[in-house]
Design a protein around this nucleic acid. Sequence first.
DNA 1: ATAATAAAAGATAATTTTGTCTTTTATTAA
DNA 2: TTAATAAAAGACAAAATTATCTTTTATTAT
Lengths: 142, 142
Amino acid sequence: MLLSKSCEYAIRAAVYIAYKSHKNQRTGMIEVAEAIGSPIHFTGKILQAMARRKVISSNKGPHGGFYVKDDRSLFLIDIIRAIDGCELFSACVMGLQTCSDLKPCPMHAQIKPLKDQLLIEFGKKSVNEMVYEYEQNRYFLK
Amino acid sequence: MLLSKSCEYAIRAAVYIAYKSHKNQRTGMIEVAEAIGSPIHFTGKILQAMARRKVISSNKGPHGGFYVKDDRSLFLIDIIRAIDGCELFSACVMGLQTCSDLKPCPMHAQIKPLKDQLLIEFGKKSVNEMVYEYEQNRYFLK
DNA sequence: ATAATAAAAGATAATTTTGTCTTTTATTAA
DNA sequence: TTAATAAAAGACAAAATTATCTTTTATTAT
C-alpha cells in the first residue's frame, strides 16, 4: 500500500473536520469515527497526533472538539508528513541503502520520477478542494 | 513504503539467484542471505514462497539449491505479485471501498495514472536486465 | 541401502501496526 | 467554585509483519 491505514484515516478525518469547520462547527472523535467508518479510539489517537503536529486544532471542554483553521493552506502532503513521514518519497524500491542518483538501483530511473510526481500531486491537493468535492457529493468518506 | 520488506528481499534474492544461474550454479539460502544482507531463515521463507509460486526453482539434496530457469521471461512484477500481491496497483489511496473510475476519490485522477505507470515499469523490467547491470557492478545488492 | 546435503515445513518469538479501554487534564457554563 | 464536557494521555490487547530456530522430507552420491 502507498499509505498506512492510519494515514488513510487521517486524510478522511481531516476532510470531515474541515467540512464541519466550514459550517463553523467543531466535532469530536466519536462523530468523526462514525463519519469516516473508523474505530473510535484509534481515530482519537490519530486526531491527537495530527493536533500535536499542528495539522488540525483542538480544544478541550464543552463546545470543544477538533477543527481546521485554514484548509486552503492545508495540503494532503502535510497530513502524510505528520502521520507516515516522507520515506515513501525517498526510500529505494529495492530497499538498498546505497541507492541514490549517483549510484542508482536498476529501477531508480523509472521509479524516481513517479515518486517525485506523487509528491507534487500530494503537495498540490488542498483539503479545501477535497471538502468542496465532498459537499458536491462527488464521493463518500467511507 | 511502496513494497513490503519481504518483497524487497525477494527482488534482491531473485537477482542474486539468477546471477548464479548465469554461471550454471545453484545457491542456498545461507549464501543468498549473505549476498543480499538479509536474515537467513526469513530469507528461506521468502525463497520457499517464490519457489511455490514458480517464480524461482529449487531442488533438495546435494548439489541442490535455488535457481532461475529463464530470467529473460521473469519480470519484477512477477515477484511483486508472488509476495505482495497487486493491491498496491488497485487500492484507493484514501482507503475508500467505493473509489473507482466511475465514483472516484478526490485523488483518483492524479494517482491512478501513476499507479498504472508503476505497473507498466515493473512489468517491463526483466530480472535478466537487472543481473546484467549487477554484473557490470553498477549497483550492489545490500 | 546409506550417509550427506539442502530445501521444506512447522513452531516460536520479536516488532510494528492497528485497535480498545480507562484515567487525567483542560475548558466552559452555570 | 462546581459540575459537565471533551480532548489528551497512558495502559493494554489483537493482528500482521518480520525474524529465528528446529525438525522433516527429498535428493544425490557413494
